[in-house]
Design a protein around this nucleic acid. Structure first.
Lengths: 224, 224
DNA sequence: TAGATTGTTAATCGATTAACAATC
DNA sequence: TAGATTGTTAATCGATTAACAATC
């Protein structure tokens, strides 16, 4: 609906400019972290072949992924580590400031409050909320837990972009509805239950139980 | 090396019996949860078409996924919900008892200790460890935090299958090495850093920052 | 029987890899 | 120049979907 669509066939109301395939998006942070580790070393260039042997992707895939965003390499040299790093920084949107709140100040919410990587990724943690009077008022990482009743107002007034959803499964949908109504743009969902949101809301399911299931499934396979 | 390999070409030392494709493994827990929700309702059968419309997968994919494990459906009726549910239970290995420990009793470790879904999935939480003297001795979910120095002995003696790794990034590799040495079979890794383990160890990276990156990347795409 | 729905095969789609011309 | 390595095109591989015969 935002009419900023530049794609050729705009007959279909897709909000795509030139959407990055999900498979690539998933690998970008890995490239980013690897490059970051290399920044401190005293080499200037790295080849796709070198990255491949370190990271376990094929060099072909790496070159193809990166070429999606432009031509960052120098033939016969490889990629300028610093240049590629800062390009990935930009592509991942870390240079855009994003505001965030945490809903639910149980142990998980507190762990999220203590996360140290927000700043580097452009997130500004603005608030943490809970409904338990015994928790409201406690302080984690210099943030005082607020009453979740105040969240809608806070989110709307402060134009919060993202909410980490760390409430019990039973509260999940209700809370997500509240967040959407308040104008949230993305939800980082840690609940163990399926949550429905309108399709223009970014929903990232950080489903931990899937990991538990995967291990279980693989353990049985091995024991057979 | 376990010589239980029944695959045709056993020239290559792969430990496969008939490995389930990762893509399918990832969907199995979703089917499982959906079926579980349906158990309480008073319908007996569900068709792949019905599941498809609820879950967002195509009916074709669902039938194909399930047919990987046998013929569970009844033509013209669909799938017996209870039967399929218990088959998934078995396929996911939930009927095998698996013992587990948590390494690191920070907020994240405590959140993991409070997780309610272990039992249903066949996990038995046996211990939680930390190195901080101020934390050792505290109790979460009826488990007293033990000194991580005692972990190797505990894991070996009790034949622990899985460890949830919830330590700071700097301790990650060192701790993983300790776990492997102690005889762990699977690691559920919550650290934000790449961890190397021998390839016969099941390693599930529960990388939370990837979610954060994904949201950031998608937010920028939308704002463009 | 007619209608419904599986299990499976063939067709399509998308993602990865291989190959190589361009060029530093 | 010879060697290295990119960016990109073509080939391959794998996963999803469509189609349909089998059958309840």
């Amino acid at each position: 609906m935002t009419a900023k669509n530049e794609s050729k066939n705009s007959d279909n109301a897709k909000p795509t400019v030139k959407e990055i395939p999900d498979k690539i998006v998933r690998r970008l942070p890995h490239y980013y972290v690897q490059l970051k580790n290399m920044l401190n070393k005293d080499v200037e260039y790295v080849s796709s072949e070198q990255l491949a042997s370190i990271m376990g992707y094929s060099s072909s895939l790496i070159r193809r992924d990166l070429s999606h965003f432009g031509q960052f390499g120098k033939k016969s040299y490889g990629y300028d580590i610093h240049c590629l790093y800062s390009n990935l920084h930009r592509i991942l949107g870390f240079n855009h400031e994003k505001s965030m709140v945490i809903i639910g100040a149980g142990f998980l919410g507190r762990a999220l409050a203590n996360n140290k990587s927000y700043e580097e990724r452009g997130y500004l943690l603005r608030g943490i909320f809970d409904k338990d009077p015994a928790i409201i008022g406690l302080e984690f990482n210099n943030l005082r837990v607020m009453d979740v009743e105040r969240a809608p107002e806070f989110i709307a007034e402060n134009n919060i972009d993202v909410a980490a959803l760390a409430v019990p499964a039973l509260e999940a949908q209700k809370t997500a509805d509240m967040l959407v109504k308040a104008g949230i743009k993305g939800i980082w969902d840690f609940t163990e239950t399926p949550v429905e949101v309108p399709e223009d809301i970014i929903l990232i399911e950080q489903n931990m139980n899937d990991g538990l299931c995967k291990i279980s499934c693989k353990l049985v396979q091995k024991s057979k």
